[in-house]
Nucleic acid binder design. Structure first.
Lengths: 199, 199
DNA sequence: CAATCTATCTTTAGACT
DNA sequence: AAGTCTAAAGATAGATT
């Protein structure tokens, strides 16, 4: 007897699913679905794909081919030019704002340099230290202090960025949404063969 | 009789598509498909989803709801514990190897904290200083210093990196790409729709 | 090439276990 | 709560414009 056992897939509105349970199920199912799609794209086209998902509760899920760190590091370190015809402009904006962490890192490095200098000066006056701070083990740091520091760095970062923009806007009078300052092309690990350069 | 106009969707093997043109088309189509899925997951479940795709040529594409930076920063900064039942083991393994940049960032924060402490101690002995460098407004940095920043950072970066190799397993291979953002505020985090297409 | 077409393949909503 | 089932919804391969 050909009685329908189920109604089959039903159409649903494209809006937040009201029912908690249904939403959870859908979250799980569709997340898996995206992973599968990502893996297929990777296989079929030889691309590297990373998917990051955060549940409303803030729990993190990720999928990466070859690995999610590789993917994110690629974005953060290498920052290749966007090439998506559909999302080109958006990409340009995003990608260069994406540098925030990297910039912070740079900021920190430079501030460390300054600190080092100043400490050197201080040490001349108080020559009873044996090791530089950079040689000390990191060890014991209170969460609170770290957080405070992070906030300060963030503020400083904004100042520097603003100043940097003045500087580099003057230096390179470009109308582009960004300006690349120092590309150091010598060590670019992503010089690709012309064969695959198309996309 | 109604003649078939197309053969419809054909099944394809799940392996790298040999034909270059087909592969390109598939890359584009399926990438869009994943973006759509991601956006739907976000809408239906209130999740934040980020997708990063790198073509074999290393060109980057990304999609993010609310924004790809937010997503990646979340991973890099917060590094929440894995909670994916499907990929649990893989995730656990991956996340245990902390993100390299994040590690460096943390390292630097730590070292700065140490530096701060030590400078505080030093200052007690040499109480003719008024403020710590981290308290100085950044605008007091000279133009010259800002211009020299790249070089300094690179040198220090190498130094830190060398020491990092001792502490951590792996060294970063990339030199620092000094890209600078202009302060595009970009209030609209939603991706696909927000922009006039440039071409 | 981007866009459309459409037959067919693939995903998944809902129900049950 | 993870797995199964089913049929409808949705994605897309291949062709065309």
């Amino acid at each position: 007897m050909e009685k329908k056992q189920t109604k089959g897939r039903q159409k649903i509105e494209m809006k937040r699913i009201p029912n908690e349970e249904d939403r959870l199920i859908t979250f799980s199912k569709r997340r898996s679905g995206i992973y599968k799609k990502a893996s297929e794209l990777s296989t079929l086209c030889g691309a590297e794909v990373g998917v990051l998902v955060f549940s409303p509760a803030g729990k993190a899920f990720s999928f990466g081919q070859p690995s999610i760190e590789k993917i994110t590091n690629k974005v953060l370190y290498e920052n290749p030019p966007p090439n998506d015809n559909t999302l080109n402009l958006v990409e340009a904006h995003r990608r260069f704002r994406l540098n925030e962490l990297h910039q912070k890192y740079s900021e920190l490095l430079s501030k460390m340099e300054v600190a080092k200098e100043q400490e050197k000066i201080l040490r001349k006056k108080v020559p009873n230290r044996s090791k530089g701070w950079w040689e000390e083990p990191i060890s014991e740091l209170s969460m609170h202090e770290l957080e405070q520091m992070a906030i300060k760095i963030q503020m400083l970062h904004k100042h520097v960025q603003h100043r940097a923009n003045e500087l580099w806007t003057r230096a390179s009078s470009s109308s582009l949404p960004f300006s690349v300052v120092n590309q150091t092309p010598s060590t670019n690990p992503f010089s690709m063969t012309e064969v695959e350069q198309k996309y």
